[in-house]
Simulated assay, not measured.
Amino acid sequence: MSTAVAKPPPGCTLDINDPQIQEAAIRIQASYRGHRSRKELREKGPPKILQPLKDVILLEGSAAKLACRVSAFPDPFIIWSKDGRELKDGPKYRYVFEDPDVVALVVRDGELADLGQYTVSIKNTFGVTSGSACIIVEVPAKIVKGPDNVTVVKGSTVVLKAEISGEPPPDVGWLIDGEDIEEDDRVFYDIRDTTTILTIKNAQRSDAGKYEVFVENNLGMDQSFARMDVL
């Protein structure tokens, strides 16, 4: 007793004698042979960096990516570090593998503390190689805390202090009642990494007024005011 074979649905048959079908099969075979030969031609050995890391600029509050192209067979183990400290893959630092040959690190929520040298270490059973680049952080000039209002006694020494930030480091200036302060041995100011301090020795009643401190870099400017009264 013979069993009837169901016919395939319309459009689901291939004619192997069709020239177009034969041509497609040849292309598929050639592509597979090429993929297999490329894989087989990969030489076992220590990793190599084909395109090195490059310095990148990170704006405050944004993200930046460091990336390099590598050659490694067997597949390597990747470690990223900043200034010699290993970085763990997580919300702040994200290890990224864009394709078999590109490794990258994404740094999120940029802040001034992210400035530094970053290193990728690429290791397999045959050896290790590494490369480094810097993240340059740019932060608009800002007065984090302005000077306080003060009331002083004539003849005393007065110090007005402001906490500042910015990268590149901002230009800093002090004014009284809208006019630039002319520094001398009695009235002068200095600028440090995170502060600026105005010193007034032997305060006189003529020193009373509205003091302004301002900071400015290529990303922005900020200012703050304080009142000084002399009794």
Rank of each mutant, 00 (worst) to 15 (best):
K154Y: 04
F214E: 03
P74F: 04
G173R: 09
E179M: 09
D75P: 09
P169V: 05
K54I: 07
L105G: 04
A104F: 05
D207C: 05
K145G: 07
D207I: 03
Y93H: 15
S130L: 05
G220M: 03
F214S: 15
E167K: 14
A133D: 04
A67V: 00
R38T: 03
I122G: 10
D114I: 02
P170K: 09
S2N: 11
V172Y: 04
Q117K: 07
G155S: 11
K54P: 00
P19G: 08
V144Y: 04
P74G: 08
Q29E: 07
M221C: 12
Q29W: 01
I136P: 00
K210I: 13
G209D: 12
D109Y: 06
I57G: 01
P9H: 00
E138K: 14
N217F: 08
A63P: 00
P147C: 13
E111M: 11
G173M: 07
L66P: 01
G61I: 01
K54W: 02
C134M: 06
I176K: 15
I135P: 01
R205L: 11
A113F: 02
E40K: 01
L112N: 05
D148L: 10
E179R: 12
V128W: 01
G45K: 03
Q29R: 13
P74W: 02
T195W: 07
S62P: 00
P147N: 12
G173N: 08
T119M: 05
D101P: 00
V120S: 03
L112H: 04
R69T: 14
N149Q: 06
R186T: 13
L59N: 13
Q51I: 13
I28G: 02
E138Y: 05
P91I: 04
P168T: 13
G11N: 11
M221Y: 09
Q20F: 11
T125S: 15
K92Q: 14
P8L: 06
M221S: 15
Y32H: 04
R192I: 00
A226T: 14
S31L: 10
E183L: 03
A30H: 02
G220A: 07
Q223N: 13
V137K: 00
L219F: 14
A141G: 10
L219P: 01
V139C: 06
E182M: 10
R205S: 12
V230Y: 02
E179Y: 08
D193L: 12
K65V: 14
P140L: 08
V102K: 06
A203P: 00
A6C: 04
T129L: 03
L175E: 15
V5T: 11
S71A: 13
I135K: 00
V70D: 02
E138G: 02
S130H: 10
K161T: 15
N17L: 09
S165V: 02
S156M: 04
